[in-house]
Write a protein that binds this DNA or RNA. Structure first.
Lengths: 193, 193
DNA sequence: AAAATATTAGTACATTTGTTCTAAATATTG
DNA sequence: CAATATTTAGAACAAATGTACTAATATTTT
């Protein structure tokens, strides 16, 4: 494996484990037995590492939105399936979501990219909702502004379930994604016909 | 005003404005024209300042939960009222909520206190839900696990609406609380009879 | 194989930060 | 008013951090 990849892999692992603010380039370098100088040859600035990891994350989300685009959504299970995939991406890159605001402020390009990604995902979800209403899965008596609010709720829960877990339940490892998956799924229950 | 109070006031203001991680004790001291040495006479450690601010925050929340306890909740407007109050407390101490996980990990006493507070608020909300079902405001055909999931959703949205705003909409000042208040209120809509 | 290029370790430096220490000034108490 | 305690400013320090620089080594190209 290339040094560059090794750095990214080690950084992700350490950031996830100890938090993005406690890990320095020296820690990352030491963990793969290279010098700090070498690390900075590959990534001039620490933020370049974080940016690279965000690009990975965004790539995986993009892929998932594309799948959603091309899939034929006929019932709730499709949404649940996408949610599961989202949750596992969030878990994989959890250090971002546990410090999202700070990272977004520190690296504006990340905030901007995230906004675009969110806009795209929102549009996708709106389409799915309309389809599920037409198919008689979702209630047809819900006003537009409630659907719109639901979308925001979905994104808040989708982005911050991990933070809630960290602060309260502290389910370990993949169990967290599983438990919060159920909570996420329950969001749709009262909208079912 | 006592120096100690001045420090807390300045810290809250600067933390809210620039984020808890970019502000140092020197910044806080400078902003009220005292020396860093003096500041550290009043607060030996930086974290003592944050802890003090958390105690203030928890006090205001406690007060609000107590009100909820004693109030006679007969319709949704009561919940909305409590939510508004919560939202304004969150806004007042926004730096916490924008970095909650990190602060909680850095100062375990805060995490612990927050968990207890959350437990108390959850119990309170559960009581209110039951009342509203009995009063025919909420639907009576919702299974227990869905109510329980709703509670968690409520706390996630209640704690992280600000983070979502920071990352996406960026409503300024009190407008943010107002807009997200609407989104919060909408959470209850599909549960209404 | 020689030359050019890329990669690496190690050192060094400037800055920042939390905190401690000292001595002066101020306020409080007897 | 004298003694005592509190508060304050300012200097000083050690540790940490990001990153630049240098020289050696390894790899690739010609």
């Amino acid at each position: 494996m290339q040094t560059k990849e090794k750095i990214l892999e080690a950084a992700l692992s350490l950031y996830n484990e100890k938090g993005v603010n406690t890990i320095t380039t020296r820690h990352i370098a030491a963990s793969i037995n290279i010098s700090a100088g070498n690390l900075h040859y590959h990534f001039k600035h620490t933020d370049d590492i974080i940016q690279s990891l965000y690009n990975q994350l965004a790539g995986e989300f993009d892929e998932q939105v594309s799948e959603m685009e091309s899939a034929r959504v006929t019932d709730l299970s499709a949404i649940v399936g996408f949610a599961e995939k989202s949750f596992s991406i969030v878990y994989k890159y959890r250090f971002f979501f546990l410090n999202f605001v700070e990272i977004g402020n520190r690296i504006p390009a990340i905030k901007k990219a995230y906004q675009q990604l969110t806009a795209r995902r929102k549009k996708e979800f709106t389409g799915v909702f309309q389809l599920l209403i037409r198919n008689g899965i979702f209630r047809s008596d819900i006003p537009e502004n409630i659907w719109s609010a639901l979308l925001t709720q979905i994104f808040i829960v989708g982005d911050f379930w991990l933070s809630n877990n960290e602060l309260t339940n502290q389910f370990q490892g993949k169990k967290a994604a599983k438990e919060y998956g159920k909570i996420f799924e329950a969001m749709f229950y009262p909208y079912l016909k």
